[in-house]
Simulated assay, not measured.
Amino acid sequence: MAVSAVRPQALVFDLNETLLDLAPLRQAVNKAFDNPGGFRQWFGLLLQHAQTATLTGNYFNFSTIADAALEMAATMLEARPPSAEQRHELLHQFAHLPAHPDVAAGLGQLQTAGFRLFTLTNSAPTMMRQQLATAGIAEYFEQALSVDAGRLYKPHPDAYHYAAKLAGVEPAQTLMVAAHGWDVAGALAAGLQAAFIARPGQPLYPLAPLPAYQAPTITDLARQLLG
């Protein structure tokens, strides 16, 4: 059952995959491992060990974990580990991803309608700024927020509460927009509203409540919120 929603006062967007297209990085990682499952293995390890950092209280920034996960993925795939130069290039590409085609138009519609827009990403601040600049979408956001400030990765509830606090609104007045089921589930558990952007291959977590909004693109979400 979907959680009913009041009009949100702040919209908080995840970056990776929600706004940014990971396809170029997926191709590059798969090529580095010579394996069509390379990206999926690596990205899963990255998310898993970000949660390990949170649960153990042994924090490393997202880029550091991403680098370590490349070596771990090589072991699990029984592949040659990427060289230091290859790892550097892959992380550089991670920081320079394009936006999905629908993103700028959707964000522009929401901004014009008076919604306050924020980011909340697991990416470290330096990477986040590079990602926003490369994608050409920094201008739409009142503030760009990284979990690095609180040293707790999403889906820890404090990460979502941090975003709501910085926006100056209550969690229930905050809408988290994400393309990952775990991120939607985390936001809902923290008392936020949530919107799921159904990027290809991304499912909702079936054991969590349904979000108030579901849309295939940011422009479709904008139509729902403005309707």
Rank of each mutant, 00 (worst) to 15 (best):
V103T: 13
L25P: 09
F43W: 10
V29K: 03
T75G: 06
A23Q: 15
P82E: 02
F94Y: 14
L77K: 07
H100F: 11
L117N: 07
G57N: 01
M72Q: 12
Q111N: 10
F60Y: 11
L47Q: 12
Q27I: 11
R80M: 12
H88M: 11
S83F: 00
I65N: 03
D14L: 13
F39W: 06
Q48I: 09
Q93I: 13
K31C: 09
R87T: 02
A5R: 04
E89A: 13
V12G: 09
A99S: 15
A53M: 08
G114R: 03
P101Y: 04
Q9Y: 01
H92E: 00
T56I: 05
A5G: 07
V3A: 00
R87S: 03
M76F: 06
H49K: 15
Q27H: 13
Q51C: 06
G44A: 06
N58H: 12
N30P: 03
Q86W: 05
A99Y: 03
F62L: 11
L107C: 02
K31S: 13
A99H: 04
T54R: 11
A99I: 08
K31L: 14
L110K: 08
L55H: 10
T56C: 02
I65R: 06
M76K: 14
R116N: 13
Y59T: 00
T56E: 03
G57T: 02
L70G: 08
H96T: 14
Q41H: 10
G106D: 10
V29G: 03
H88E: 13
L46P: 00
Q111M: 10
A79S: 14
R26Q: 04
Q27M: 09
A69P: 10
L20Q: 13
